[in-house]
């Protein structure tokens, strides 16, 4: 519906944060779990909107702007996701928090 506009807002918002590049993205969907229903919950719950449903109806994970909040790790469980913290001195660095 208004997804387009909101997600633009969200991108701009994430753009305000300080991020330090991380060579290997720290979250990945485990092989064979690409259609797990819990991934659809992550679409709702990820505060950074990194999970989205593509045209084929599958969940995609984007890599830019992760807040390292841990929500997707808890919702999807370690069965579905391999979730690590980014390496030291990489990822989001809050100035306020």
């Amino acid at each position: 519906m208004n997804g387009g506009k909101e997600s633009l807002n969200l991108k701009a918002k994430l753009g305000l944060n300080v991020f330090k590049e991380n060579k290997n993205f720290h979250i990945s969907v485990n092989p064979g779990k690409e259609n797990d229903p819990r991934l659809f919950y992550a679409v709702l719950a990820c505060p950074a909107g990194l999970y989205s449903v593509n045209d084929a109806g599958a969940v995609e994970l984007s890599q830019d702007g992760c807040l390292e909040c841990g929500t997707c790790k808890i919702i999807c469980s370690d069965e579905v996701l391999t979730w690590r913290y980014p390496d030291g001195a990489t990822g989001v660095q809050f100035r306020f928090g």
């Binding site: 305000l16 909040c69 929500t71």
Partner: peptide, 9 residues
């Protein structure tokens, strides 16, 4: 002005 957006469980 929004200066930061953050989240945590």
């Amino acid at each position: 002005q929004t200066a930061e957006y953050s989240a945590h469980v």
